[in-house]
Design a protein around this nucleic acid. Structure first.
Lengths: 135, 135
DNA sequence: TCACTAATTGCTATTGATTCTCATGGTATA
DNA sequence: TATACCATGAGAATCAATAGCAATTAGTGA
């Protein structure tokens, strides 16, 4: 039983060709953040005939299963990244679109405090920095 | 010269009926965050005949002029709020959709530090907390 | 291994938000 | 007030994403 199959089963998803292929693409891509369209194109290039609707469906299932995270940088369309297990936030370069990941425990803690103070239980958060490279 | 006219001129925008009306709606709404559709409906209700395309155009112009800020909570459609001059971030209630504003200087400072450390000049950021109300 | 049932897929049509086109009408300036 | 340019309205067009539906396929038990 391959790696992907195991991951899918663990996530409670039937092992189907489209799901295995999509998971492979996410794992093997040199890009960390892929749009549904990116995944679709990669499938076509590798000769796999998977419908775009299926790509969207599978990515959403992966998200719900906790296999991937969905981000919406700058209000644009969704991009997906494999859940690395390590929480992190993102800095987006305004010139190249490059995405850099970072972690900061202090900010995380402060967020908890703020939600707490406002009477809420913090379930999720989204922090994206937008910056220009220094000369 | 009314308040709105002055604001529009200051922003380098011609004073036109749609722009004045839309600015009024933003100022007078009890909601802080309005979608283009919200503004459009408010215009219709007050008997003003402004096209939806114009609403989108004007809101975008206001954004570029720094009169309003655009937010994309949760990847959904855009909402706009008058720029209060005071920077703040948002906590979105996952049950009611209510949006609470907060400020935190420490987090702001940490963000600057992080961008700096990564070799970027911080231009903008987006921080949204998602929470559930505590019983 | 074979058949069965429910889940999954592919294709296409459709939605919803936003933008574009372009002819018409309005605004600031001389 | 005439002029030149900007802004508007209406609807078509676009884009990402989703829904509907008939045809396939995976996982199960015999």
């Amino acid at each position: 039983m391959s790696d992907q199959n195991h991951e899918l089963r663990k996530a409670g998803l039937k092992v189907t060709l489209p799901r295995v292929k999509i998971l492979q693409i996410l794992e093997e891509s040199h890009k960390r953040h892929l749009s549904a369209e990116d995944v679709y194109k990669a499938l076509l290039e590798s000769g796999d005939d998977v419908g775009l609707a299926t790509v969207y469906r599978v990515l959403t299932q992966f998200e719900q299963a906790g296999l991937v995270e969905r981000h919406n940088f700058d209000g644009g369309h969704s991009v997906f990244e494999l859940d690395s297990g390590e929480h992190h936030d993102h800095l987006v370069c305004m010139e190249t679109g490059k995405v850099i990941e970072f972690q900061n425990g202090e900010i995380e803690a402060l967020q908890e405090e703020i939600a707490e103070k406002l009477g809420y239980e913090l379930v999720d958060h989204s922090l994206v920095l937008y910056g220009k490279p220094k000369s």
